[in-house]
């Protein structure tokens, strides 16, 4: 598990940054419809930026498009495709990873905004060949169907335990509600969080 004391951020700070990133992504992201009268030009000086990403214990020095999200960078540059893109707007949770030991939505996080900060993805959760207890719990409880939301669910589940939000089934449901499962394996996800969290 990575050191979570480094670069600790407040929740308020994180939310503010996420909102700013969200706005940037929306403007740059084609939300301005074709036919709009004022097309958005690329911002000045928007050339590639250098960033060092620390992912699953490895270090990657990359030149990235400043618009590149952590999600796209993980998937398209680092070939870590376990993290999924379900909405690209922070509404589904499929892209959940840990930064500084906290769960974040990698689709709302610019790669350039997390230099040198420890990032853990679903590929980095197991201890070698030994699955993380939460991963095993998801298998044992059948807390999945299609599996597409599962990496994000597992990353959130690990964080929910760490956050101390497993006091009751209701609390688990509430704190897992940022992760949509369209197959609706919700009851078994709750069971898995309990098993994986040792409850």
């Amino acid at each position: 598990m990575e050191d979570s004391t480094e670069s600790e951020v407040s929740r308020r700070g994180f939310l503010a940054r996420s909102a700013a990133v969200s706005a940037a992504v929306t403007v740059a992201g084609g939300a301005v419809p074709a036919g709009a009268t004022t097309p958005v030009a690329a911002p000045p000086g928007a050339g590639p930026v250098e960033v060092t990403l620390r992912v699953n214990g490895g270090t990657h020095r990359l030149r990235v498009d400043p618009r590149a999200t952590l999600l796209d960078t993980l998937r398209e540059r680092l070939e870590l495709t376990g993290t999924k893109k379900g909405c690209d707007r922070g509404q589904c949770g499929a892209c959940t990873v840990h930064v500084d030991g906290r769960r974040v939505l990698s689709c709302l996080t610019l790669a350039a905004s997390v230099p040198n900060r420890p990032v853990t993805t679903i590929e980095g959760l197991a201890d070698g060949d030994r699955p993380h207890p939460m991963q095993q719990a998801f298998v044992d409880c059948d807390a999945l169907q299609c599996g597409f939301c599962t990496p994000g669910q597992v990353m959130s589940a690990v964080a929910v335990v760490r956050e101390g939000h497993t006091g009751s089934d209701e609390e688990i449901r509430e704190f897992m509600s940022g992760n949509l499962c369209r197959c609706a394996a919700y009851p078994t996800i709750v069971a898995a969080v309990k098993q994986g969290g040792g409850r």
């Binding site: 998937r75 495709t81 993290t83 993805t121 679903i122 959760l125 699955p131 044992d140 059948d142 599996g147």
Partner: peptide
Amino acid sequence: LNRVDGPDKVTGAARYAGDES
């Protein structure tokens, strides 16, 4: 029986179409 593709799905190893590059 546990879902046989469960281990692949909980580790990110399961590959979906968009994962191909």
